[in-house]
Design a protein around this nucleic acid. Structure first.
Length: 1077
RNA sequence: GCCCAUGUGGCGGAAUUGGUAGACGCAGCAGACUCAAAAUCUGCCGUUCGCAAGGGCGUGAAGGUUCGAUUCCUUUCGUGGGCACCA
């Protein structure tokens, strides 16, 4: 054979490899002791109906190259493949066509495998897993039961069997109940308490509910508040759901990132998702709402503590007779309504007698004698003020002397204070509800101008005043109609509604209006925020929009135009924090908050528990039976709980999943139930009709959270993965996949791994040692321009002369940017008579980069390319496109270059006319140098996933060997071993041509010998003032004095020196010389 | 709005820790072989001035550090991706 007939070669070797089970991977046994292992894993695909496009194999080729490389390096390599085959698209397709998801899934997997096979991957298909196979999801269900039967121990920070917790409750109780109480609870009460600790638990959560379709929709399926299909309204509805308590693992998921090799950006994404923040939770007391007009003025205001009132009343009357001079002076100026606000003298508030009180403004004035300088007295005064503050009053103190000597200033201060405190109407007594807010910036507490509650906040209806109720109701209706995605998408739109209620700032008693707004989310923190417009841009925009006055606490740092979230400002208008740097004030404020008992330091996570049930058919059924509101798990020996066959895939009653429609499946007979449960329920408790199976199914990520373990022991019927197998294969050494799974899948599988580790089911607590993210391959779309109303098509640069419509055209009938007009006429019947307005005799298409998708006609089928150029060319070309981790548009036109390279390689072995030309001659030093240079480069590039540069190194190597006319087995054999990870078929073929048996994968990787790379001289670049002017060849061992001499003698250097002496000469051995003038 | 990534010829991209910018490939041009085409081979190929020798300018833009910057720092602009408006 003289020609490179890749079709014949590739087909033959694929058959041989299969027949001889070349890719079979064995777990170590007693007879076959363990080699060092290496585990290379691809994210397994969802087998969609569309089949593979050229974007899919990118990561698979990279992992295949790496696997083969590691195998040649002497490792036992596990490199499996399988299918994530449960999911929504198959179910949608079933609803539309009536075909069972199992059937379409099976068919799609067949297509995927056929396509993958054409690329020549080294998967051991005997280890294939499919998440939708009962033999697989049996173990998914089993692991769910492990989660259900475990809790997170906050002391040991790990998962433990729930039986440990039950034992503790039975013997010790907790701070909430005693052991005796626990033992007295009903079974149901006990189960409800336990449910709050289980790692897989059931609770109520909001879902997108579409009444018209009678079904729950995914965020994807909701557009502008209506269902994507049919346009029916969608609202939020609370339903019973399963969750995984991933929040318990938040800290360990963060810490775990320190010990894995993920890219920094990937770790950053996970950190942001977990979103740990430190701050404080604190309480804003509500001020009672204004009394109806008239009533308030008639009813006497009772501010005193009822119990101590009789004593204090007399005391206060007594006191009024013995006033100080200062008090009298002040009373003359404040008495009655002189300051447009009623002042009271010697007024009792709670247990204190206050000198002067403005009750409407909740402002208290105290006038003190000199004995208040006493330290003990001061601390008493402070705590008294703090208490009064807390219940909503502001206290200002003056000294007697101050009042006597400068009455006007004192009065001015009081006036000022009355003005800044908005009029505050007071009902009966103080206290009542409080609003808990979470803030990361307690230092800005004096800049709070309003509070905002999430619309879903439980206090909203309670605090709304009658005047505002109608508006609030309207707003709530509006919010209910909006999906989470919309609330996120329309950032610019500011909406909100005033509740009519007020709270007071715990530090200065300032009255603060309470609003609701959709920008505050119920699920994060406490669902309520304190808004500081001068420091937070969203609060600022809100204040501006609703004309809420803004308090500036950061002086010049705030310009009135926009908020400034700095922590470097010095606080102003901030009471006891005045003059402090904000970053220092955070701690001070938290301490004060804790001291006053109005709040506490709080670590918060943005991450929420993961919703784990779907009201769908095509997923794992939950191994759970509901008995009178108690979730009773199946026993392990009853698994798998197989997904029953259904006729229709529509939703069940009340939005339940399709399974709810199968009565005989849902209703479990009492005998069967009793036989299966761990709960020793007695016949008396039985309510036969209420024993029903859970009808929702598990989400897509259930099966994918642990599949990497199943590959280690895929056929095991006793356990999900034998401990000896998971101990041997251990962590995935390299995991390859796209960034779209950065947070979802990767966090869930990390959590499951940690749970399994805690329960001692496996021996490691991070699943993936190293993660490589492949970039996305984008489509490169082509456009033609149809002149409006005609069947004429105008070439790209002439289109502006016409009124045209842009139309996507199939990339496969465009050569580069030139349209094949004949193919175009054949492409669709409507274009059969198309006419063209050409430029330079060609039709040039427009180009745009967008997502690769069938609807843009920009997908390229890998099979088309492997048929035309062969798998080896295709593999190398995908790698040659650019760095694996980088996103790039697909462009087929460069593939010829790679194909030429392989043909050129072939011609090192065969000549068209002479036939075989390889020989057994002894290699020259020059040839060995080429070889070892290549070994060095390929080895390090492969290890670093720099496959694009490796391909170019192969090209350079073959070019150089061709120039040297090297056809020597001694060189070529090793070159083939380097090449086999990249181009396995041609390498195997030529390796056998050289007389070898077996498979080249069992050959050993070439060993670099540095001696062939030693150079004696080096072409040094010579720069003058950093600009390259010439090069001079010098001995590699030459030292500075010698080099300087040679350089200064050089004609070109002398020309630039113009007779001057250089300032200095910089010489870096082996690198360069720079002459500084 | 926030977070991450990225910007180098006509194009994909290359350039150890700062040390010869544009490797390798595509496209293009010229030539050899051929009746012709394909295949293959040889040469040219950032831009600009120049007959040439040889210069000037060039890694999104503007500054800075340095003997020397695609690489480090500051500011700024563009593009792509992600997100749960995260208090």
């Amino acid at each position: 054979m003289m020609e490179y007939d890749f079709r014949k070669i590739e087909e033959r070797w694929r058959e041989q490899w299969k027949e001889k089970k070349v890719y079979k991977v064995n777990n170590p046994t007693a007879e076959q002791p363990a080699k060092p292992k290496f585990y290379v894993l691809d994210m397994f695909p969802y087998p969609s109906g569309a089949g593979l496009h050229v974007g899919h194999p990118l990561g698979y080729i990279a992992s295949d190259i790496y696997s083969r490389f590691k195998r040649l390096k002497g490792f036992n390599v596990l490199h499996p493949m399988g299918f994530d085959s449960f999911g929504l698209p198959a179910e949608q397709y079933a609803i539309e066509t009536g075909q069972h998801p199992a059937t379409t899934t099976e068919k799609n997997i067949g297509t995927f495998k056929a396509q993958l096979d054409k690329i020549g991957f080294c998967y051991d298909w005997e280890r294939e897993v499919r998440t939708s196979d009962a033999s697989y999801y049996k173990w998914t269900q089993c692991l769910f039961l492990q989660l259900f039967n475990s809790y997170f121990c906050n002391t040991q920070k790990k998962a433990r069997p729930i039986s440990d917790l039950i034992r503790k409750y039975e013997t010790q109780g907790t701070k909430h109940f005693t052991a005796a109480q626990w033992n007295g609870y009903t079974k149901k009460e006990q189960q409800e308490i336990l449910m709050k600790r289980r790692l897989a638990f059931s609770s109520y959560g909001e879902v997108n509910w579409c009444e018209a379709l009678g079904t729950v929709l995914a965020n994807d399926e909701v557009v502008n508040g209506v269902s994507e299909r049919g346009g029916h309204p969608v609202i939020k509805k609370k339903m019973r759901q399963w969750y995984l308590r991933i929040t318990a693992y938040a800290d360990r998921l963060l810490e775990g990132l320190e010990k894995v090799a993920f890219s920094e950006s990937m770790k950053e994404m996970q950190r942001n998702w977990i979103g740990k923040s430190e701050g404080a939770e604190l309480e804003f007391r509500l001020t009672p709402n204004p009394s109806p007009a008239g009533e308030g003025s008639k009813t006497p205001i009772q501010t005193a503590n009822k119990d101590s009132w009789p004593i204090l009343k007399d005391l206060s009357r007594e006191n009024r007779k013995s006033n100080t001079l200062a008090e009298d002076i002040l009373w003359q100026r404040l008495g009655g309504n002189q300051l447009d606000s009623k002042a009271r003298r010697r007024h009792v508030i709670e247990n204190f007698i206050i000198d002067f009180a403005f009750l409407n403004e909740r402002l208290l004035i105290e006038v003190d004698g000199d004995y208040h300088n006493d330290e003990e007295q001061q601390s008493y005064d402070d705590s008294r003020s703090a208490y009064l503050n807390q219940i909503g009053y502001k206290v200002i103190r003056f000294r007697n002397r101050e009042v006597e000597e400068d009455t006007d200033t004192v009065i001015a201060k009081i006036k000022e204070e009355l003005k800044t405190r908005a009029s505050l109407s007071l009902g009966r007594g103080v206290g009542g509800e409080a609003i808990n807010v979470y803030t990361t910036r307690p230092d800005t507490i004096f800049g709070v101008d309003f509070l905002v509650l999430a619309p879903e906040h439980e206090l909203v209806s309670k605090i709304t005043t009658d005047d505002q109720r109608a508006k609030v109701e309207d707003y709530l209706t509006y919010v209910k109609s909006r999906s989470d995605r919309e609330r996120m998408a329309e950032v610019k739109q500011i909406t909100g509604c005033f509740t009519g209620a007020y709270a007071m700032n715990p530090f200065d008693g300032k009255q603060i209006p309470i609003w609701i707004a959709e920008y505050v989310l119920a699920g994060y923190g406490t669902g309520a925020i304190m808004a500081v417009p001068c420091g937070d841009q969203r609060d600022f925009a809100f204040a501006n929009h609703f004309k809420i006055p803004i308090t500036n606490i950061i002086g010049d740092f705030y310009n009135g135009e926009e908020a400034n979230p700095t922590k470097d400002a010095t606080l102003q208008n901030s009471g006891f924090l005045n003059g402090m740097l904000m970053k220092d004030a955070i701690g001070v404020a938290i301490s004060k908050i804790e001291e006053l008992g109005i709040g506490k330091r709080k670590v918060n996570y943005r991450m929420r528990d993961a919703g784990f049930s779907r009201q769908r058919y095509w997923g794992e059924p939950f191994p759970v039976i509901w008995e009178d509101g108690i979730a009773v798990p199946l026993n392990e020996n009853e698994l798998p709980l197989e997904l029953p066959f259904v006729e229709k895939y529509g939703p069940g009653p009340e939005g339940e999943g399709p399974l709810a429609n199968i009565e005989e499946w849902v209703n479990v007979s009492w005998e069967d139930f009793l036989r299966s449960t761990w709960v020793d329920l007695t016949e008396e408790n039985a309510h036969l009709e209420s024993v029903k199976r859970e009808t929702s199914t598990m989400p897509g990520y259930a099966g994918s959270s642990w599949y990497f373990l199943r590959y280690m022991d895929p056929k095991n019927n006793e356990t999900f993965c034998d401990r000896s197998a998971s101990d041997y294969w251990n962590q995935v050494d390299v995991y390859i996949g796209g960034t779209e799974h950065a947070v979802g899948h990767l966090l869930y599988s990390r959590m499951w791994t940690k749970v399994m580790y805690d329960l001692n089911l496996i021996g490691f607590d991070e699943p993936f040692k190293r993660l490589v993210n492949q970039g996305m391959i984008q489509g490169s779309s082509r456009f033609v321009y149809r002149v409006a109303g005609t069947n004429k098509f105008v070439s790209y640069s002439l289109k502006n002369n016409y009124e045209v419509n842009d139309l996507h055209v199939d990339v496969n009938i465009v050569d580069g940017i030139e349209l094949n007009v004949d193919s175009f006429r054949q492409w669709k019947s409507e274009y059969a008579n198309a006419e063209f307005i050409l430029e330079d005799g060609k039709y040039i298409c427009g180009v745009e980069t967008e997502k690769m998708s069938k609807r843009y006609f920009n997908t390229v089928d890998p099979v088309m390319l492997t048929d035309k150029y062969g798998a080896d060319t295709f593999r190398m070309y995908e790698m040659f496109l650019g760095p694996v981790e980088q996103s790039k548009p697909w462009d087929t036109k460069g593939i010829e270059g790679v194909h030429r390279f392989l043909r050129k390689l072939w011609r090192l072995f065969f000549d068209e006319l002479k036939g075989k030309i390889w020989n057994n001659d002894k290699a020259t030093d020059a040839e060995l140098k080429v070889l070892h240079k290549t070994i060095k480069k390929i080895e390090s590039d492969t290890e670093n996933f720099s496959f694009n540069t490796a391909v170019s190194a192969f090209m350079i190597s073959v070019n150089e060997l061709a120039d040297l006319k090297c056809h020597k087995k001694e060189i070529l054999e090793q070159l083939l071993t380097l090449l086999v990870p990249y181009a396995p078929h041609i390498a195997e073929e030529l390796w056998h041509e050289l007389g070898n048996e077996g498979t080249i994968l069992d050959a050993s990787y070439p060993v670099l010998e540095e001696k062939y790379l030693v150079e004696t001289s080096k072409e040094y670049p010579i720069s003058i003032n950093g600009k390259l002017r010439t090069t001079i060849s010098m001995d590699v061992n030459a030292l500075q004095p010698e080099v300087e001499k040679i350089v200064l003698e050089n004609d070109i250097v002398q020309k630039w020196l113009e007779g001057n002496r250089p300032k200095k000469i910089i010489f870096v051995k082996g690198k360069m010389v720079n002459v500084v003038l």
